[in-house]
Write a protein that binds this DNA or RNA. Structure first.
Lengths: 129, 129
DNA sequence: TTGATTGTTTGACATATGTCAAACTATAAA
DNA sequence: TTTATAGTTTGACATATGTCAAACAATCAA
């Protein structure tokens, strides 16, 4: 087994680990949620919420929320940006859809090389496990 | 936030946790892999491998492999069955595709109520977070 | 500048996790 | 029955993780 492959699996495991804590997952799901029941929604409409709002009614300390957001950011599952006193968060669609593709039978590099390879290269890459 | 919702998130977090360890994820990916590059493959062709084969060249103790498989089974990501001296493993497609659907923007219950609700009920359920 | 809001960092600690080794169980073959 | 093969369970232990509290930093309003 190549070291490169090991690294790829390791990186992917970190993404899953970021979603493995109930509180952290809850925060993430609030960002993933998009349209209210029955309505259409543009797939480009990114939901952005501030940190305080995300932790609200989860009954955990603000510092813990902050810690969780850092993990999600490290995994590239979300992105953040300061807006005045607040810090806005939204999901990184590319990473999330890459994950979905992998679980649907897509190849691993589709997720991991998201910033380097072209779409065509990704579509033809079938180096599965 | 309802207790029911909390339970659902908790269960989902366990599924992700099962994929959060590099070795365990590697084992899982070997089961997910299906067709060699460039070939078509029936989506119903379940890959089944025995425990020993799965741990091969991962350089971890057989007892550790066994432990990891138990976690994957607990998360309903794989299924197992004894065949003579061996124990065969294959992925639980329903759980995996449910995960993929969730990450593609589907609702949470699609994954979690996989054994109870009908397909139609699932398609109409938009109780997002 | 002072005070109020929002969020982050650090330190501490209890709990969970991954791993191996050794003992054990189940099946098949001789 | 005895032996070999395949996998599981248990015990032990080092490391990682989640959480809170307290101190800190950044921005805005008065």
């Amino acid at each position: 087994m190549s070291n490169n492959q090991k690294d790829e699996v390791h990186r992917l495991a970190e993404v899953f680990k970021a979603l493995s804590n109930p509180n952290r997952l809850h925060i993430f799901l609030r960002l993933v949620s998009c349209c209210p029941p029955g309505t259409k929604c543009s797939s480009d409409a990114a939901i952005r919420r501030c940190v305080g709002e995300l932790g609200r009614d989860l009954e955990i300390d603000p510092s813990t929320v902050s810690h969780h957001l850092k993990e999600l950011r490290r995994a590239e599952l979300i992105r953040v940006e300061r807006r005045g006193k607040n810090i806005l968060c939204w999901v990184d669609r590319e990473t999330v859809l890459g994950l979905a593709n992998l679980l649907s039978g897509g190849s691993l590099p589709t997720l991991l090389e998201k910033e380097t390879g072209s779409m065509e290269e990704k579509a033809n890459d079938r180096s599965n496990f």
